[in-house]
Write a protein that binds this DNA or RNA. Sequence first.
DNA 1: GCTTGTACTTGAAACGCATCAAAGGGGCCG
DNA 2: CGGCCCCTTTGATGCGTTTCAAGTACAAGC
Lengths: 369, 369
Amino acid sequence: MAKVKISDVAREAGVSLGTVSNALNHPEKLRPETLKLINETINRLGYLPNQSARQLAGGATKSFGLVLPRLDHGFSLQIASGAHNEARKHGYDLLIANADNDDILQDHYLRYFMGTQMSGVMVQPMASPDWHPAMTKMPVPIVHLDIHCSEPGYYVAADNEAQGRIIAELAIARGAHHIVVVGRAAFMQLTLRVLGIHKALALHPDIKIEVIDAGEWNTAADGYGIGAQIAERPADERPDFVVGLTDVLASGVVSALVDKGISVPGQVRVAGCDGNPLAWSGSVPLTTVAPPGYEIGRKGVQLLMEQIENKAPAKIKHIRVGSAARTVTAVAAEDINRQELVRPFLLERASTQASSQTDATAINLGAYL
Amino acid sequence: MAKVKISDVAREAGVSLGTVSNALNHPEKLRPETLKLINETINRLGYLPNQSARQLAGGATKSFGLVLPRLDHGFSLQIASGAHNEARKHGYDLLIANADNDDILQDHYLRYFMGTQMSGVMVQPMASPDWHPAMTKMPVPIVHLDIHCSEPGYYVAADNEAQGRIIAELAIARGAHHIVVVGRAAFMQLTLRVLGIHKALALHPDIKIEVIDAGEWNTAADGYGIGAQIAERPADERPDFVVGLTDVLASGVVSALVDKGISVPGQVRVAGCDGNPLAWSGSVPLTTVAPPGYEIGRKGVQLLMEQIENKAPAKIKHIRVGSAARTVTAVAAEDINRQELVRPFLLERASTQASSQTDATAINLGAYL
DNA sequence: GCTTGTACTTGAAACGCATCAAAGGGGCCG
DNA sequence: CGGCCCCTTTGATGCGTTTCAAGTACAAGC
């Protein structure tokens, strides 16, 4: 059970230490027979390279770290998926850490990755990334995802404000008078969505808007609770349009409203944000704005690669993905038939690989609207 | 930008190398002033310990690795969530790798983790874990999740067969004559669910059963495609009960059927497996069997801790989580009102934290049944 | 003043590997 | 047969830590 190390392999195979190392890292330098002999010995002995030693001796490893605020958020997963595929394409590994909505933990994992000689690190921060300026001065390429940095540094962000605008314009097009926004607005990204909503409504002072915090976790259950609370209001204080800052939240709201006998979308319309596949693929799909998470992850890795290859000190570089203005207008003005918007999207995906998601911010019109 | 190392801190603070190291690892050994001085220097210089060197010199790190077959599978996320919380409770970090449904990649990450001096590694393998016996002989504690190992070793598995049985008995109770099972049965776990279905139907030779592979990814789009195909069959070749081996698949099937004008559950009933929150929280929730993923992750870490603390060579140890026999009977026999089963569950969760999920295998009855 | 003990601090020795300058071993040509 | 060059292999060196035996300083007790 004692760990077998490279010197054991070397001795056993009757070659030198460096040769075994070459077999691992530069196989093309070895004579085929030598290589074969060494590989056989490696398998026979069950040798496993000690990554720590490799990294120590060899400098950076070909791997990236990704710190996510939560794993059960569909959007974060799309990011992870995009980042993963792009990383593999360049021959890099991707390791993911779950910060569990905790600033301290986020910081912890970030430092951990930085210290592991990762080639690069990505974060989807939950607070503003200015939270710890020291972080961006580290000698490891870092990219912030889904957030706008004011400090110099790299980031890739979806146009969260635009998403809010889309939803708001949808609400306006539907003739909403009283909008309730559900979600933990303290999350930077959600704040921007709320901002977009407010901006879009600036020209419509007659529309009342209300934001309800959904607790720390933004769960379906939280949504259900808020939905129930809304249902119990007297009819004239009840909103006619509810925006879930998250699909899961919106979904919970729908449940509660229906349970309490409120008709959706008859009395209250509901829409979400995230583009969670389950949300719009059921028989009664939820309307949802889908930010291009997959693409954000992909672009993030590309920015990392860029920094690595240039080896230049990070200059300011921002990428904003998927402006969705066109879609908005189309929806608001023409009020397209739902089926036509939702289904083609599904069908289109049926013919491609699931993991190659759409790049642009899209809106999927559903039945609760 | 040059990396600052421990010796820089030592020089700058006017102490020795070992003292700085102690400040990091055994702060109680230092005089408070010294500690303070060193900490200040560390912050001033932006020193970040090199994890690789730490691990090399110090042996195992307090962190676990978790290799998941896919991230967008709700069940895997529950595992990750449970494992994460339990690991943090013991002061361990958890790093997650996405094998992307690829055996090679799974193996790759597994070796990577083993080589990183992780304190322990967990896998949710997609094939049988006997795929590489050498792996279990490694000098790193390993636990297999959601799968039954025939070889000696540790594993934690839900009773997948029971899940299949539950669904099958549900179908029987509903008077099904022709069942179609949708999913990639090549996945070990899904195979067991199928096995459970077959076993439950052994006593009902009159019920026809058919398994349709859903492609590599088990996406909603795959489900949609299969649903469409089912819809186009002549009525007498069409099943009256469809089981999605995954909620997402089932959800896609429902979409397709409804689109093609087939009534659900009027003509065809549909149920899924996974307990994906979105699946049963909409206004028209999907019936789904929910294996205790959170608990599996938790137990996995506990087994890891056990191995670490005993330091005994791994003996065989299996944990089977959440037998669901009781629930089955209740459902099959009494045919409980849907709302009463679905909603209380939701409400119950509303009052607890989202991350503390239910432990037992549960079934949520929905509207498509 | 000397001894013993306590409380910190020191620095050299690993940890397992990648690297690279140097050595070895053929083959080829003159 | 000697000289050259190319292909392959060698092994000493250092990567940034932790650890631990050995050291220092200081206080208390005699």
